[in-house]
Amino acid sequence: MLKPAEKKKLADKARELREKIIEVTYTCGGAHVGGAFSQHDILVALYYKYLKIDPKRPQWPERDRFVLSKGHGGIGHAVILGDKGYFDEALLDDFNKTGSPFGMHLDRLKVPGVDTSTGSLGHGFPMAVGIALGARLQGKKFRTYCMVGDGECHEGSVWEAAMAGGHYKVTNLTLFVDRNGFCLDGDTEEIMTLEPLDAKFEAFGWRALTIDGHDFAQIDEAILTSQAEKERPVVIIANTIKGKGVDFMEGQTAWHYGGLDDQMKEKALKSIRGK
């Protein structure tokens, strides 16, 4: 059970970092802000409670790994890594600019703390399965966490990786699906049906948990369950809200990607602080 004080700490951190994401979205001209906010609370829980990492040693071989398979959430990931001290946060001022280490999809060779370069959908999950298999083979104790987008689950390679993960029982991997309900062109169920998503994963040999991806208590419990499970790998299907935290973005497919002017920025910050 997550203690109230811990829950408050995570919620405060999540709010503070949502503001930073808005600031960077404003300066960089445009970002995948909707998905960055839907994934956000899970990433905060991971980076501020669960991941065994050392920002001073980004290449520490025994560190836990996190693979953001939905690489377009990179802006949210970058803001967290900056806050954790992997690099000077001032570098985020140049996000998206020519020659900056930061583009909308993060590059592991340029951004300390990024374990795999992602962006092209359906790639991160197979790599995460590979990391988990490699770790287990060598008796390494670290855990791998991976997040796919729900629209990303349209990619065949997600299901190739799911099949392999189920076959090899990669219980040292926790998979999240950021189920915000939208891909770029609209509602996932209108574009290409995903449901029943939990049954699909179960059929591929996974144990599927469904949670509210913005409820820290549920996130916490699901992660603990995934760590304890020894028979089947666990996928946590997190029902989330695209643009969560900013009233005029929430549930709006238009905010899959967008930029902010001065007025919108202030309105967004006000909305985040007000919640």
């Binding site: 999950f125 399965v129 590979g130 990391i131 083979l137 392999a164």
Partner: peptide
């Protein structure tokens, strides 16, 4: 199994662990 794309991704991940 017959899934080449996945194999390349898994190989990349295994290399991350030093294999």
């Amino acid at each position: 199994g017959i899934a080449e794309a996945n194999m390349m991704g898994i190989a990349s991940g295994m290399a991350e662990t030093g294999l």
